[in-house]
Amino acid sequence: MIKRRLFSASLLAAPFARPAFAQTWQPSGPIKMIVAYPAGGPTDVIARIVAADISGPLGQQVVVENISGGAGAIGTRTVAKAKPDGQTITFGNNQTHGNNMFMLKEPGYDAVKDFAPLAGAGAFEHVFVVRNDLPAKNIQDVIALAKAKPGELNYGSTGIGSGSHLSTELFMARTGTKMTHVPYRGASPLVQDLVGGRIDLSNSTLPSVLAQIKSGQIRAVALGSPKRNPHLPEVATLEEQGVKGANAASWAAFFAPAGTPQPILDRLSAEILKSLKKPETIEKIDKLGFTVEPRDPAQFKPYQAQEIATWVQIAKDAGIQPGE
Rank of each mutant, 00 (worst) to 15 (best):
L104T: 10
A236Q: 15
K284E: 06
D53N: 14
E240L: 07
S215H: 06
T168Q: 13
A20Q: 03
D114K: 00
Q140L: 11
L265F: 03
T90S: 07
V50D: 14
A47Y: 14
G56S: 08
E240S: 09
Y184H: 13
P261A: 08
G75M: 03
V292K: 07
L170A: 07
V45K: 15
E271A: 07
R5F: 12
E106M: 08
G245T: 01
I218N: 12
P226N: 05
G259Y: 02
P263Q: 06
Y109I: 01
L153A: 06
A13V: 02
T168W: 10
G72W: 05
G122W: 13
N93A: 08
G40Y: 09
A36L: 02
A111G: 11
G159C: 03
E293P: 00
L153T: 08
K301S: 00
L201M: 15
G69N: 05
G161K: 06
W25R: 00
K3Q: 09
P230N: 12
G224Q: 11
A14G: 02
P207I: 10
G197Q: 13
A315E: 05
I139G: 09
E283N: 07
G224K: 09
D133C: 10
V243E: 11
A13D: 01
L232R: 14
Q306W: 06
Q140D: 12
F102P: 13
G176M: 02
S188T: 15
S215G: 04
P30K: 06
F300D: 01
G72Y: 05
G98W: 04
I89F: 07
E152I: 12
L201P: 13
P233Y: 11
A220T: 13
Q321F: 05
P263F: 08
Q321L: 08
A111I: 02
L265P: 03
K32L: 01
S55Q: 05
L288M: 09
I264E: 04
G197E: 10
L134Q: 13
A315G: 13
D53E: 15
F16A: 04
M172I: 01
T175K: 11
S250W: 12
S269W: 02
T281F: 05
W25F: 00
K137F: 13
G242Y: 07
P42A: 15
L206D: 10
T177D: 05
W311N: 11
Q313L: 05
G41K: 07
F21Y: 03
V191I: 15
A80T: 00
P322H: 08
W311R: 10
A20R: 04
T310S: 08
G86N: 02
A211H: 06
G196N: 15
G319C: 06
P57M: 12
L276K: 09
P27R: 03
S215R: 13
L104R: 12
A220V: 10
E125V: 09
Y109E: 01
F7I: 10
Q23R: 10
I320S: 06
D286A: 12
I320W: 09
A309M: 00
A318H: 11
A270Q: 06
N99E: 07
L194I: 14
G56R: 13
G176E: 01
A249S: 13
G323C: 08
I199V: 15
K105T: 11
F102L: 06
P302L: 01
V64Y: 09
S167T: 11
G161W: 04
R131A: 15
V221G: 11
A52P: 12
